[in-house]
């Protein structure tokens, strides 16, 4: 693959999906995860597996209080904070830059 761009261009443009994530370094990102969870936090690191390190994180967990368990069967959310969080890539569904 002959690229018209110089070697320096690799670091400043979006050639592959994870380049978009690179542009979000030190920015706040939204991350959707398996297991009914979402995160919002400042991105400090990632790799090709989508392993992440986020700072000042707010985690949102979606849960259902089942009627059989004395709940009303509705979906509710629970929020948790974490100062610094490593997230394993195999749980990550999507990463979105937050404007």
């Amino acid at each position: 693959m002959a690229s018209p761009e110089g070697p320096g261009a690799v670091t400043s443009s979006v050639n592959e999906p994870l380049d978009l994530v690179r542009l979000s370094l030190n920015e706040v990102v939204f991350v959707k995860l398996r297991g009914d969870r979402e995160l919002k936090g400042r991105l400090h690191a990632y790799d090709s597996h989508c392993n992440l390190v986020l700072g000042e994180v707010e985690e949102t967990i979606y849960m259902v209080d089942e009627e059989e368990e004395g709940g009303n069967g509705e979906v509710r959310t629970m929020k948790k904070q974490s100062e610094m969080l490593f997230v394993r890539g195999d749980s990550v569904v999507l990463i979105s830059p937050q404007a």
């Binding site: 690179r22 030190n26 100062e83 394993r88």
Partner: peptide
């Protein structure tokens, strides 16, 4: 593993971002 909660003061974030790039 889903998460590892880390002590923020043990993480040098600028260094980590450089290493990521």
């Amino acid at each position: 593993v889903r998460y590892v909660h880390l002590p923020a003061n043990a993480v040098d974030t600028p260094l980590l971002e450089d290493a990521t790039r």
